[in-house]
Design a protein around this nucleic acid. Structure first.
Lengths: 194, 194
DNA sequence: CAAATAACATACAGGCTGTATGTATGCAAC
DNA sequence: GTTGCATACATACAGCCTGTATGTTATTTG
């Protein structure tokens, strides 16, 4: 607890406190019903600090989301290393995605409030930079270059949406096994065995 | 323009004016950035009238959404009459859904702002009462009672999400033909021919 | 050590939501 | 037909929230 702290240290500490407090409140009450006075109180800073680090409330939300999307992408990468069996890698990545999205709050942040606050196009670009990219590359590796009845980017988007809905349903209390198996069944029909 | 109007007439007229004005503004600027003063100005009534007819702003939004979901469901029903060919009916209903969702504003209302404002569970129940129910019944008719690798309600939810993403992508400017064919391809893999 | 700057803190203006209260018109009973 | 009530609004107000503008303190730099 030295009162002697370097400037980047102070800044990073308050930034982290704001991100953590904001994440917790956005998850608990949703973006719209969370006020900046609440956030700064939980983070034990003032609104001046918030508006010093972030342009506005959506900008803070965006920062929370990018962290979260990065964490999800990391978990997928760890599980679905693109080895010699691309089909197995896609299925492993699929289950890893559902596991990653079961971390409390992630569905609300990334799938519910995110599109409304930042717009579906910005969410799509965050997604394409993280989780969806893994899926697309997995499909390309598993399907090869021969002609197909569908475009890979389009099918990636459709499957990605199905993944999201599965995560939401599981979060809402549906049977996880039922949605996991339905999702795998869907992927297997798109990527035929060998 | 007789100043002599019956009470139910007056009420229904202002209700309709509010719903129409609100829909237009929610579509143009989104729910969060649309204020009730704006809405009542466009509808040429006062905020007193709004809060007389609707409990609060989310309640007005819900009324707009229910109308919209009903309209979508009607278009699907018209196209996918469950005749003797259940597989063809599912495919016809699929294309009808994408057409219905191409009416300007519907994706934003039903797929973007809806889940954030009313919560995904309430949106899911509105959907199950309208469009998703058609799809589930179509799948049941097309797949029959024999055992499958997946549960029909779960697969209905996943396909429904893929439909929604296709509608969003088309709205965002992606190639409609690519998404239509990818979507049909997905449905065909779930519902094998005959 | 002095000036400049980063990192906040405080104060304020404008706008929005929901409620409480007031009013006029249709309506129903007598 | 008039009296009383309910419906359908209209107006006014209180509280909160967002973003900005300005002030203050600690750190860094020349």
């Amino acid at each position: 607890m030295q009162p002697r702290r370097t400037n980047p240290e102070r800044a990073e500490a308050t930034r982290a406190a704001l991100l953590e407090a904001a994440r917790a409140l956005f998850v608990e009450k949703g973006y719209a019903k969370t006020s900046t006075p609440e956030i700064v109180e939980a983070a034990k800073v003032t609104r001046g600090a918030l508006y010093h680090h972030f342009a506005d409330k959506p900008d803070l939300f965006r920062a929370v989301l990018e962290r979260e999307a990065q964490a999800v992408a990391d978990e997928i990468e760890a599980a679905a290393s693109p080895g010699p069996a691309p089909r197995a890698a896609v299925i492993a990545g699929s289950l890893a995605y559902l596991d990653a999205m079961s971390v409390p709050g992630r569905t609300r942040l990334l799938l519910v409030d995110g599109p409304a606050v930042l717009g579906p196009s910005e969410i799509a670009s965050i997604d394409e930079a993280h989780a969806a990219r893994s899926l697309r590359e997995g499909l390309e590796a598993a399907l090869g270059p021969k002609p197909r009845a569908f475009s890979i980017p389009a099918m990636t988007a459709l499957l990605s949406a199905a993944f999201d809905r599965a995560a939401l349903a599981i979060e809402a209390g549906s049977d996880p096994a039922a949605f996991r198996s339905a999702m795998i069944s869907l992927v297997e029909r798109v990527v035929p065995p060998a």
